[in-house]
Amino acid sequence: MPIDWIWGLIGGLLIGTGGAVYLLGNGRIMGASGIIGGIVDGSGRGTLWERLVFLAGVALLPVLLMPVYREVDTHITDNMAVLVAAGLLVGVGTRIANGCTSGHGVCGMSRLSIRGFVATACYILAGGVGVVLFRHVLGVI
């Protein structure tokens, strides 16, 4: 599936351009968990509108692109226990670590932040072990 990695690269360039615009435009690091978390726990009250408008852009562009691009299926599991456990882990984990794939991964590693590299190594390793364990050993996903 060579077309998939080309779209991956194009999508990656778009994501990085978004991060560049957010940094040089507003002076902010584009981290999805931080932007959402600041709304949820109230710590981002002072920049609430900026956060909401950012997330509106994230959610809206796929709606606009859907007719001209391709059918997408998220293949999200219908196992409620898995979804609840995964959501809790992602929510707690990203906020304790102060970043996720966008903040620590894209924005952190591209500025050679040691925290970005350590966090990314940890979540990729844990994710890899998790998928292998849950899929091949336990068979729950």
Binding site: A32, S33, I36, L55, V58, A59, L61, P62, H75, I76, T77, V82, L83, A85, A86, G87, L88, L89, V90, G91, V92, G93, T94, R95, I96, A97, N98, C100, T101, S102, H104, R115, V118, A119, T120, C122, Y123, I124, L125, A126, G127, G128, V129, G130, V131, F134, I141
Partner: peptide, 24 residues
């Protein structure tokens, strides 16, 4: 940083979702 990232990674692997794509 370590504990949080490990917990996040397990959840990420379980559902295949992280915060950005879950909004997209």
């Amino acid at each position: 940083l370590i504990l949080g990232s490990v917990l996040f990674g397990i959840g990420w692997g379980l559902a295949g979702l992280c915060p950005g794509p879950s909004i997209a």
